[in-house]
Amino acid sequence: MKPEALKQEFSFFPGCMARLKLPQVERSVRTLLEDLGVSLKDEPRFTCCPDPVMFRSASRDDWLLLAARNLSLDSGPPIVTLCPGCASSLSEARHVLDEDEELAASVAARLRKLGLKLALPHTQHFLQILSDPGVREDIAERVTMRFDGLKAGTHYGCHLVRPSSAVHFENPEKPTCLDELLSLAGAERVDYEDKYLCCGRPSIDDATSRSIVEHKLKAMKAAGCEVLIVACPFCFEQFDLGQAILERKGGSFGIPVLYISQFLSLAMGRDPQELGLELHRIKPNGLL
């Protein structure tokens, strides 16, 4: 029987990063959700969420307007994203508009000029769907390839759980969902130093960003991580491409990075090539 959490249709919000830079991430998320029986609807008019870091750094007012436009395009099903940035940005805009009637009225008036009616559908990262006990049971039953004893580090991504006032998902400082999902396929959780520290990617200062990712990779290596599991396209790029750049400069880590949907789809018997694993900078061949 289909778990209750999956009985509705979701509007799928792919986001710019996966759509234009990491299609393998989008492929694996769609494949996983489809395999679990989630119906996804595409909305071609979705634009950038917009980016809660760069775009919002220019203008918070414009960020709110474009987010409201995305939320109002399809006043139907709830939205599911594959990127914590998109989920956090849209949820925060929804929260702001929900709390401030006057602001919401002025945004609604602007949207009317586009022929849209302000709507505030619930927006979530797909990991929130996977937190449903029924869905977890279903995943466990479908596992055909186990990763028993594989030492898997996880990195959650800040925007997956914060700001908690708008996102409402897990413990905002110590989430557990990735570690729990890994254990469904037998992988072993690794508690490396500074596990919950940001990946550094959104800092607009390259030196700060690089020192953070280097620190984290060293901590993972010291703790014996054989793979790193992430749930954010920006974190993915920071650890995959960022690691390749550090290795070119003499660093040595050798920690392949998988999106949680790639890991779960592999465990559920999907072909590595169909999940685009060959596109990764740090090749995950040793895992397969």
């Binding site: 393998q24 989008e26 950038c48 775009f55 596109l279």
Partner: peptide, 30 residues
């Protein structure tokens, strides 16, 4: 920051649809 803003306002997205991405997406049935 200026570049991201300009890209979003001009194209709706951050980044560009390159031939490589078009090919990859087609191959992956996206």
């Amino acid at each position: 920051v200026k570049a991201v803003r300009a890209s979003v306002l001009e194209k709706g997205v951050v980044g560009a649809v390159t031939q490589r991405i078009t090919d990859l997406r087609k191959r992956m049935n996206l």
